[in-house]
Simulated scan of single mutants.
Amino acid sequence: MRSMKHRTLTGLGVLALTAGGFAAVSGHSAAQAADRNGKCEKGEFCYNFNSDLKGAWSDFTSSVGDYGTTQPSCYDFKGKAKGHGKCIKNDAGGFWNKTNKPVTIYFNSGYAGRSVTVKPGAKGKLPAAVYNNNASHRIGKGGGGGHNPAPSGKWASPVPSSAVITARAYYSSGRYHGAVDYSGFNGKFRSACNGTIDSIAINRTYANRNAYGVTGSTNYLWVNCGGGIRMGYAHWYAKDLPSSLKRGTKVKAGQNLVNVGNQGNSSGQHLHFQVERSGKQIDGHDFLQSKGVKGLPRE
């Protein structure tokens, strides 16, 4: 991930993990791909691009608190009908609830703002309150709706507010990055959610040194936040990993994790912060903003 600056920056580390480097840690499972096939099937809640339900479909088996707003990281309409490929946020005209539970559709991300609840089996044009203003949905009263545990509801900034954003989902060149890079700070980065460490990947060849330009050389720590949300932290040195942090360790939002580093495919000290929702990369900074997190670095 090579960081392209959003604003003039001198003497701050910037990153270099290529898009190809994400392949090993991201992507849909076969089951998830079947869930998102552009067909509204039994057990799913679906949006349609058109109010008459003749457009492209976007189908879900679980609740989603943030649809995303840009390709390729957003939830989109599938198939070949009108609207296919468009991000669904604030662009759905119709719906079909083929689950056996009520579904609440929200005006804002994070299950917030005005909302409308539709009964099992209901279909048609989205109610006026959320017509072309759909930003999240919750299946059932508890909102889980799928095989993932419900989110903890507690989030935090992974870095000090004084940190600088040096890259987002796309570099200024237009090349896909798939994460947020935070530079300009020292010390430990923090867990951005309550969750459980489910993966620690250390590249033994470059565990404690830089490998700029070498794809797949970067150390990663992943936290499962529940509700399909996973958060990845990269470029720390293996020597700085506390012995208390291992697979299965529970962490709390705001808890210190590892010292920020310049390990692996990186061109300067920074945190590569990667967030996935149901296996699909989303903008982590936008996600935390949607959760009302305070103390995030400003653009």
Rank of each mutant, 00 (worst) to 15 (best):
A31M: 07
M4E: 14
Y176S: 06
E41Q: 13
L53G: 00
L221Q: 08
Y111N: 06
M231K: 04
A33T: 13
H285F: 13
K78N: 07
I197K: 04
K39E: 13
F189H: 07
D35I: 15
R277D: 12
I202W: 14
E41V: 04
G174R: 12
P102A: 02
Y131I: 00
I165N: 00
S157M: 04
G261K: 08
G195N: 11
N208F: 02
G261D: 02
E299I: 06
L271Y: 01
N50I: 01
H137S: 03
N148V: 00
A23K: 13
H270L: 09
L126E: 07
P151E: 02
G110R: 06
T18Y: 08
K239D: 05
K42F: 02
S266R: 00
D66H: 15
G213M: 13
K188R: 14
K250F: 00
G264W: 14
G226R: 06
S29M: 01
G20T: 12
F95C: 03
A122C: 02
T8K: 12
W96C: 00
L288F: 02
Y75W: 07
L241S: 06
A238I: 09
G85L: 06
R2D: 11
A23H: 09
L257T: 06
T104M: 07
G248H: 01
N259F: 10
S162I: 05
I105D: 02
T196E: 01
I197G: 09
L241E: 07
F185Q: 11
R36M: 12
T10D: 09
S26K: 10
C225R: 03
K123E: 01
G85I: 04
A31Y: 12
A122D: 01
G21W: 02
G124M: 03
D76W: 12
K294M: 03
K39I: 07
L12F: 13
E276S: 09
G213L: 11
G264M: 15
S109Y: 03
A56L: 10
V116D: 07
G55S: 06
G213D: 12
G226M: 09
G85Q: 01
H147T: 12
S63N: 09
N37L: 07
Y171C: 00
Q281E: 05
S290Q: 14
N100C: 00
G13N: 07
T8Q: 13
T215V: 14
I197C: 09
D286H: 06
S266L: 08
A31T: 15
V64F: 02
A16I: 00
I200R: 07
K80T: 15
G268M: 01
A56C: 12
G248Y: 05
N224Q: 05
G178Y: 13
G279R: 07
T196S: 01
S162P: 03
A129D: 15
R114L: 06
R7G: 09
A92V: 01
H28Q: 10
I105V: 12
G140W: 02
G121K: 05
A34V: 15
N186V: 04
S29L: 05
L17Q: 10
G261T: 09
A135W: 02
L221Y: 07
N100G: 13
N134V: 14
V258W: 10
N186L: 08
N259D: 13
A128P: 04
N37C: 11
S136F: 03
G113L: 14
V130M: 04
L17E: 14
T205E: 15
N90A: 06
G121Q: 05
